[in-house]
Design a protein around this nucleic acid. Structure first.
Lengths: 193, 193
DNA sequence: GAAAAACATTGACCTATATCAACGTTTTCA
DNA sequence: TGAAAACGTTGATATAGGTCAATGTTTTTC
C-alpha cells in the first residue's frame, strides 16, 4: 500500500524526469483534485477549455459531432494520461469537441494560466509538456495513417495489437465510434478475428 | 529584394519569437542548406529519419503505403513549415512513411543530435519547437476529426476553406490521396462545389 | 428488484465511394 | 520536337460498410 501514501501526480512527474525536480511542490500546488461520475461532461463543445486534466483513475473520451449530430470519438484517455481539448486550450477558442467520462474518474486539474506559468518558469515542467506533445502528435499521425490507408478489419486488428486494453474496457459502441465504424460493422468484424 | 539579403531561417525564428534571440548564430550554424528536385525522396520508409527540414521554398509530402502498396499522403508541407518523420525522428525508429518533394525545393536541414542539443541549451529554440508541436498536434487532431466525421464532399469543402492553396498548387491525384479519396471521386466532387 | 433504457447482435437491404476501362490532354524527357 | 508516360475526366459496374429493423441481453434507475 505504499502507492497510496504518495501523490499520484508526484509519482508521474518523478518517473518521467527520473528524479525529484526542484520546485515540484510549487507545481503540485497548482493542481486540484476532482472526482467525476461516469458520463459526466467536463467540457461542452462550443465552450472554451480552461483546464487540463491528469487522469489518476478512470477513463474519458473526446467526442465530436457532425452536421447530423452523429458522434465520433476523437480520442480516448486512460490512467496516467492527460486530457484537454488541445485546440481550445492552446488557442483560447471554442472547442469543437466534448470531454466526457466513460467511467467514474479521479483527476487532477490545472488552469490554463497556471499551466502557462509553470511552462515558463519551471523548466522540467516544460520538458514534460514537450515530451507529451511529441507522444500525442505521434499517436495522432499514426491514427491519420490508419484512417487513410486501412480498411475496417485492418483498423480493428491494429487497435487490438496496439491498445488491447480498449477492447476489454470499453463498449462496442464506443470502440466503433473511435474506429470510424458503425457498431453493427464492428460487431460483425469481431467474429472474423 | 531586401528579403534575399537575410537568412530565411533567421527571419522565421525572429518572427516567431518577436525579437532576435541571444545565441541565434549558434542555432543557424547547425543548419545546412539543401536543394532538391521535384520527386526527390528525402527519406525512404523503413529507414530512420536523422534530420529535420525547414522549407524555404517548395513543397513536400509524407507518403505511407498500405498492404497493397497503394499510397496515401499523410501530410503536406509548404514554405515556412517544417518536415520530418516525427515518430522516426523522435524515437529513433524506422519510419513508416516516405518524405518526397512535390516541387523542386530549397531546405535547411538539421541533424537529430544538433536538434536535441539546441532544444536543451537554447531556451527560445525549445519554445519554438514546443509551439510547433502544439500547432502540428492541433492540425493532426482536426484531420482525424474530418476523417471520422465528414463524408467526401464535406472533406473537400473543409480543405478548400482551410487550405485553399493546396488546390491551386497540387495535382488532383495528390489532393485525393491527402483526403483519403480516389482521384476519380475527387474529380467528380469538384464539379459539385 | 422490477420496469425502462441502453446495448449487442444478426439479417435484409441500400448507398457512397472504389474500381475498371476508355479516351483526350498535359507533362516529361531523350 | 516528338514519343512515351502520367494525368484528368467520364461512364459503367462492383463492393465495403452503412442503415434500418427485430430480438435478446445487459445496465440503469427509481
Amino acid at each position: 500500500m505504499y502507492a497510496a501514501m504518495t501523490h499520484p501526480l508526484e509519482d508521474y512527474i518523478c518517473r518521467k524526469i527520473g528524479e525529484r525536480p526542484v520546485g515540484l511542490d510549487l507545481v503540485l500546488a497548482q493542481f486540484t483534485e476532482l472526482r467525476i461520475k461516469r458520463n459526466h461532461v467536463l467540457l461542452e463543445e462550443g465552450k472554451i477549455c480552461h483546464r487540463c486534466y491528469f487522469v489518476v483513475e478512470g477513463c474519458l473520451r473526446l467526442v465530436t459531432y457532425n452536421r447530423n449530430g452523429e458522434e465520433s470519438t476523437s480520442n480516448l484517455i486512460f490512467e496516467q494520461e492527460w486530457v484537454t481539448s488541445i485546440q481550445s486550450f492552446v488557442n483560447r477558442q471554442p472547442a469543437n469537441e466534448r470531454i466526457q467520462a466513460l467511467e467514474s474518474s479521479q483527476l487532477y486539474a490545472i488552469s490554463f494560466d497556471a499551466f502557462q506559468h509553470l511552462v515558463k518558469t519551471v523548466p522540467p515542467f516544460e520538458t514534460i509538456y514537450r515530451a507529451l506533445l511529441e507522444e500525442s502528435y505521434v499517436h495522432s499521425t499514426q491514427r491519420v495513417m490508419s484512417l487513410l490507408g486501412m480498411d475496417a478489419l485492418e483498423r480493428v486488428r491494429w487497435l487490438l495489437s496496439f491498445q488491447p486494453l480498449i477492447f476489454s474496457r470499453l463498449s462496442n459502441k464506443v470502440i466503433a465510434s473511435y474506429l470510424g465504424l458503425s457498431p453493427e460493422t464492428l460487431s460483425r468484424l469481431k467474429m472474423k478475428l
